[in-house]
Design a protein around this nucleic acid. Structure first.
Length: 432
DNA sequence: TCTGGGGTCCTAGGACCC
DNA sequence: TCTGGGGTCCTAGGACCC
């Protein structure tokens, strides 16, 4: 594989300062001006090229950004709009090849292998044309990386030229990776980079020069796949199907200042539960597992989880469970800064699912109630209807206290008494 | 870097069973 | 009293990504 120049041709298309660029694309008055998004969080989520030129980077507090740049335009993030523009971007890519993986809101992989004849040009020309077309039609700049594998295409995107185009030819992989830090490779995080450094591997070139057998003594499967991809052999599959189901859905929200008010913290948690359920219903999924966690003032997190009697995506059914989990975690002397819920082990929601002994009419009522809620929210915005916190204390009867369900399922909560510390990485991730 | 929100996959080790 | 072997399933936790 290392010897032919393009056994496979993978392009990575990546929006440059995408959120800010979208704002500038739809509002011409903002073009040429320093723009950032992230107003709702008081943190810079994305900075326009102009803002970056003034020294503003992602993750900076808006306060500080304003100081650096008094004429900064600060906007709230508008994901709906960005998604719409992204969709048009993906559609343009699809006019070149059907094999497109929508990797994130501003990033896609395209498999161009075998299309030279069809388009009557080289892969490189194809990519340049694609880039021009996107920028002309959408008014947002994109970076393009072209290489034999996804991982190499990401590297190519990183080492791009001023024209925002980068290419790694299969014959010149070693040259391209010679000085590229292994820590900057897609799939290599801080932990793996540190581990590799112990073995005197700090560049991607050193990484691919090491033997698989040697690396296999201390690396795991995904890391070895990265190694293989860097050598020009595809190892990470292409996911061209659009996402239609989740394995888990989570909602976390930080509030300031931190609080030790039980009702307030619980109402925050409830809001997350509602939002997570709404999303699950939108994808016609239901949760089998529910994790609740609280993050303390000192940034430590505690979580507990419950296994549900039957899959649900309805807050009123989850409230009593969430309440019990919450009570296990909450310590009045502690101040909390955020709450979170994870709906896990999601399954496709089917109208017939209910345990044998539950009255169908109650379940049907619930379903109709939330169908109405979803409709109202769709029509008038998501804040028109919500759970009163008072509702929390009611609705304790539906899922619990059924004596005659099968033995193993009688337990509403499994491991209910367990109280464990959640590792920080669960909540700690990077920007954008 | 005094720290937002939302996901995925992999692995080690224990529980449980024969 | 120092011990059988082996398989499967589940969980907790780690690591990574945008």
């Amino acid at each position: 594989m290392l010897f032919s120049s393009f056994p496979t041709a993978i392009a990575l298309v990546d929006g440059v300062s995408f959120f800010a660029a979208c704002e500038q694309a739809i509002n011409p008055a903002l073009r040429g001006r320093p723009v950032v998004t992230g107003k709702e969080r008081n943190i810079v989520a994305a900075a326009s090229v102009e803002a970056k030129a003034r020294g503003i980077t992602r993750g900076v507090a808006l306060w500080d950004a304003k100081k650096l740049c008094p004429d900064l335009v600060v906007l709230p993030s508008d994901y709906e709009t960005y998604s719409l523009i992204a969709k048009r971007l993906y559609d343009i890519i699809r006019s070149y090849t059907p094999a497109v993986e929508e990797y994130s809101i501003d990033e896609a992989f395209a498999d161009l292998t075998g299309l030279r004849r069809l388009h009557r040009c080289s892969y490189e020309d194809m990519c340049r044309q694609l880039q021009r077309e996107i920028e002309a039609k959408l008014g947002v700049a994109v970076r393009v990386g072209l290489a034999p594998t996804k991982t190499l295409a990401k590297v190519a995107g990183e080492i791009h030229q001023p024209d925002r185009f980068g290419v790694i030819n299969g014959r010149h992989i070693e040259d391209a990776l010679h000085r590229f830090p292994v820590a900057d490779v897609w799939g290599i995080g801080p932990a793996t980079a540190a581990l590799l450094a112990k073995h005197r591997i700090t560049t991607a070139g050193q990484f691919i020069a090491a033997s698989r057998d040697y690396l296999a003594t201390f690396l795991t499967k995904p890391q070895l796949e990265t190694w293989q991809e860097l050598r020009g052999e595809p190892a990470i599959p292409f996911m061209t199907e659009p996402k239609e189901a989740y394995h888990s859905i989570s909602k976390v929200k930080t509030f300031t200042p931190a609080s030790n008010d039980r009702d307030y913290v619980f109402s925050q948690l409830l809001k997350n539960v509602e939002n997570a359920c709404t999303k699950a219903r939108r994808y016609e999924q239901a949760a089998t597992k529910c994790v609740v966690f609280l993050r303390q003032h000192d940034f430590r997190s505690l979580g507990v989880e419950a296994t549900l009697l039957r899959p649900t995506a309805y807050p009123n059914e989850l409230v009593p469970i969430v309440r019990r989990l919450f009570e296990q975690l909450f310590t009045p002397t502690m101040r909390y800064r955020s709450t979170g819920v994870i709906l896990g082990d999601l399954v496709a929601a089917s109208p017939t699912q209910r345990s044998l002994f539950e009255p169908a009419n109650i379940i049907d009522k619930t379903r109709r109630l939330y169908a109405a809620v979803d409709m109202l929210r769709g029509k008038y915005g998501k804040h028109v209807v919500h759970h009163g916190a008072s509702l929390a204390a009611q609705h304790t009867q539906h899922l619990s206290a059924r004596g005659d369900v099968p033995r193993r399922k009688r337990l509403l909560l499994k491991g209910e008494t367990k109280r464990r510390r959640l590792p920080l990485p669960l909540l700690q991730t990077s920007v954008n």
